[in-house]
Design a protein around this nucleic acid. Structure first.
Length: 823
RNA sequence: GCCCGGGUGGCGAAACCGGCAGACGCAACGGACUUAAAAUCCGUUUCUCCGCAAGGGGAGUGCGGGUUCAAGUCCCGCCCCGGGCACCA
């Protein structure tokens, strides 16, 4: 019975991994990036985690992708920056504090320590000297600094806005804490909308550029689905704003439309119920009705609700046709999109059609199908482009033409203009929560809102605060924090008690990695110029909109502040799939989580990393199964034992018996595998096929083991060790040492394939009759048409299937195939 | 409704430019080693038909059409699944 515990030729993952873990822990700066280097730079980044407590397999797969890439790039001779940090502010820390009576700071740091230990145990190659923790004043003071810069530039402003409010908790909730319209802690309590003074950042100021650069800078480099989600979210529409005049009073009501070509078909104007003009035009009964609509909308869950309207009693004049149309309010008209008012063209818009049918408003057709008559389906509107009809001087134009001409006409006549409208809203960053960055302003009765002077930053989050989760922000009860003197006039003033959304923290952390210890600036611009843009950013697709739009916004703001030169944060983005187990995403509530620690004990870190990459291509969701992980474990054992026993054979100069008859086959496969793995790294990252390729190689090595020369082994052993090292660093390092070599293995050069050795020595040509496979032959590469035809005709199976038939045509693809077409 | 993905054996998947469908792995079955088991090593495994066998035939990549000597791959029309946006004028 082999003594696995003490036999170095057996694959004992515990022994190997603890041995190298210890050595690596005692090597400071093992994965440090060079500040300056003659090598080309490569910045590879995985999205920083929230320190929730411990790593599971989902994290492992995620980081294994970036780690394999970082190691590969090192071996390719790049100066690699591969940092890691902690998105450490946020609600779970506060909730844990309430539940466990532990301070968020303490809870967060305990989690960070634990997760960092696991990261090291997984052998993720981070430069820990650049670690960033967002809840430290050294970091968040720069959030405050950026806030002040935005305030100076008019990009930060304050306004009253609707927020989610739970009456039970008596506090504001983040959108993420509203589940199906109810509070997450009081599942039967509906969340209300409450108007509060909030701070906003003007993301809309960059809407145009954010959208344009999707096409100009990111297309083809970021995943399509992410770009398409961002396009949807930003939501640009080109249209026209037109003033209708209220009959009698002469007041104007401005509407926004993307279909000004249909305006002669407008049969009413509809205002949002909260529209100021609607309030003015209506009597008390009307205002009550409007309030009812607004209230109903607050309670309304997702999904469509029937159209409701109310006639204001007023009429408006269409400036194109001079026609007088009634003015309504409608529950489906949104105050915060466009102008909060629309013209209704029931004949050419689904919603207007539904509204008109409900309230007996006339339906007038003004667009004709380009190749049809003027017939309108009785039950639905015609919403496509066509030819304009019955529209005065614009009659006969195409819709596209009319949209341009009629916009210009409005402009000339002074009652409207072309207008681009975006769906994206400004970013509301205020949170009535404790565990976040204090917003650096002071409210003074005399001076109003006064920014905290730059030299007084950071505004430090006080530690001795009672967190109850109920009532106002915990900061409001910290007297020493709240009560300050106005920096302007010196009189008594109150400090702002809201904190910033945690998405602020993660919007620029990747810049801080370049200069993590800078105490006088967020970073040194020269260092950013060296490292940016991020060459490869890796993270979950769930961040496609929020984090990745905010980060792009922040980058553009920093650029306009003159701090950086890049327009976009990341050159390439990769979104990995989720880890699924028993048909569901891994989560604590489903009880299907596999912890990194369990996996490390059972199979080792290398197996976890390898299986995470082998089970599916990295952009797809993968199924975790213990049996599948065992397969990856078996593979690592197979490579390891092969290397271990043959390394010995090499070092003892023992000659092989089989006259090296296996060399050619094994070396050919070796060099094909080098090509394959290198290609996968350079192109698609389909590491599942890289690993499959290595498995095929190992299968051949087992077959030919007795027939390999020492010379061949001398090539094979180091090469396969290097190929494996980005995926299974522990196993590779041990194999490297067994060959008498000195590491670390990830600082060696990546192997280069020898094309001559990789080449097959004959072409395998497929023989078909009428497209059906009838056999294969091996012929020298480059054999000509005649030779191939002859060879095909000589094949007995081919002969049998063309027997007695007439040959119509012979298709020959050199080195590939002969297809004989018969009748 | 609109916009992105995707649909291939019992399962995860591969086939990258239109050229042998199912590499690699899991599971299952069989064999070797073992007192026995585990571990390890070696085989078989898309379905189906003919044959004692060696072997051979047919079908097959969600469905229906098309282009082509040749289609998982390209085109047209559907169905289903996942994700995003959604009364956005």
């Amino acid at each position: 019975m082999p003594d696995i515990e003490n036999d170095p030729k057996q694959y004992d993952h515990q022994r190997i991994e603890t041995k190298w873990q210890q050595r690596w822990d005692n090597t400071p700066g093992l994965y440090a990036a060079d500040a300056e280097s003659s090598k080309p730079k490569y910045y590879v980044l995985e999205m920083l985690p929230y320190p929730s407590g411990s790593l599971h397999i989902g994290h492992v797969r995620n980081y294994a992708i970036g780690d394999a890439l970082a190691r590969y790039k090192w071996m390719q001779g790049f100066n690699v920056l591969h940092p890691m940090g902690w998105d450490a502010f946020g609600l779970p820390a506060e909730n844990a504090a309430i539940k466990n009576k532990r301070h968020p700071y303490e809870w967060t740091h305990a989690n960070i320590a634990e997760m960092k230990r696991q990261h090291r145990r997984m052998a993720f190659s981070y430069d820990w000297d650049r670690e960033v923790t967002t809840c430290e004043p050294e970091y968040y003071r720069w959030n405050q600094w950026f806030f002040l810069k935005m305030l100076e530039r008019g990009l930060a402003y304050r306004k009253k806005a609707l927020v989610n409010w739970c009456p039970e908790c008596a506090t504001v909730l983040a959108n993420e804490q509203v589940i199906d319209g109810c509070c997450w802690r009081h599942e039967t309590t509906r969340v209300e909308q409450k108007a509060l003074e909030q701070w906003f950042w003007k993301t809309t100021a960059y809407a145009d550029e954010l959208l344009r650069d999707i096409d100009e800078k990111l297309d083809g480099k970021w995943p399509d689905r992410v770009l398409s989600m961002q396009r949807n979210w930003i939501g640009r529409s080109e249209g026209t704003e037109v003033d209708f005049t209220i009959d009698g009073s002469g007041e104007k009501v401005r509407v926004f439309t993307t279909r000004v070509d249909t305006i002669y078909g407008a049969t009413c104007v509809i205002l949002a119920p909260e529209h100021p003009l609607a309030q003015k035009l209506m009597d008390d009964a009307g205002r009550a009705k409007a309030k009812e609509m607004v209230d109903a909308r607050k309670l309304q869950g997702p999904g469509e609700v029937g159209k409701e309207g109310y006639f204001t009693g007023a009429y408006a004049i269409n400036p194109y046709s001079q026609e007088k149309v009634p003015v309504w309010i409608g529950n489906f008209v949104l105050m915060d999109y466009g102008t909060g008012a629309i013209m209704a063209v029931p004949a050419h818009d689904e919603r207007d059609f539904e509204f008109a049918t409900t309230y007996n408003i006339p339906i007038r057709q003004v667009i004709r199908h380009p190749d049809g008559g003027l017939e309108l389906h009785p039950a639905k509107p015609f919403t496509e482009y066509g030819i304009v009809e019955d529209s005065g001087q614009f009659t006969g134009m195409t819709s596209a033409e009319a949209r341009k001409v009629m916009s210009a006409f409005a402009d000339g006549a002074g009652f409207g203009n072309a207008k681009v409208t975006f769906r994206i809203k400004d970013w509301g960053i205020s949170r009535q929560r404790y565990w976040g960055t204090p917003i650096p302003v002071i409210h003074c009765e005399k001076c109003g809102v006064v920014p905290v002077p730059e030299n007084q930053l950071p505004v430090v989050l006080p530690v001795d605060v009672e967190i109850t989760g109920v009532g106002q922000s915990p900061l409001a009860s910290a007297a020493s924090f709240v009560n300050v003197k106005c920096p302007n006039c010196g009189s008594d003033a109150r400090r702002e008690t809201d904190t910033m959304d945690t998405f602020v923290d993660s919007s620029w952390y990747f810049y801080r990695y370049c200069d993590a210890k800078n105490s006088t600036a967020p970073y040194d611009s020269k260092k950013i110029a060296y490292w940016f843009p991020i060459d490869q950013y890796i993270g979950g697709v769930e961040h496609a909109i929020l984090h990745l739009i905010y980060s792009r916004f922040f980058t553009k703001v920093m650029r306009d502040l003159g701090l950086i030169q890049n327009d976009e944060p990341a050159e390439r983005l990769f979104t990995q799939g989720m880890v699924i187990r028993d048909g569901a995403k891994m989560s604590k509530s489903k009880g299907n989580v596999v912890s990194a620690d369990d996996m490390i004990t059972r199979f080792g870190a290398d197996t976890g990393r390898l299986f995470g990459l082998f089970a599916a291509p990295p952009e797809k969701d993968m199924d975790w199964t213990d049996a599948g992980a065992e397969g990856s474990y078996r593979f690592l054992g197979r490579v390891f034992r092969f290397v271990a026993r043959n390394a010995e054979r090499l070092t003892t100069q023992e000659s092989t018996s089989g006259a090296a008859t296996g060399d050619k086959k094994a070396l050919r496969k070796l060099h094909q595998t080098i090509q394959k793995v290198t290609d996968d790294f350079n192109q698609r990252w389909h590491f599942n096929t890289s690993i499959a390729g290595m498995m095929e190689l190992v299968n051949i090595l087992y077959e030919e083991e007795a027939n390999l020369s020492g010379a061949a082994l001398g090539q094979i052993l180091p090469a396969i060790t290097l190929l494996l090292s980005p995926f299974a660093p522990y196993t590779a390092e041990e194999m490297w040492e067994l060959q008498g070599r000195t590491g670390p293995v990830f600082r060696q050069s990546w192997p280069v394939a020898d094309e001559q050795l990789a080449k097959e020595d004959a072409a395998e040509v497929v023989l078909q009759v009428n497209g059906k496979l009838r056999g294969t032959i091996r012929v020298p590469f480059g054999a000509d048409r005649e030779t191939l035809e002859k060879a095909a005709m000589a094949d007995p199976r081919v002969r049998a299937s063309i027997e007695g038939k007439q040959i119509v045509k012979i298709v020959v693809v050199p080195d590939k195939l002969v297809n004989i077409v018969v009748r």
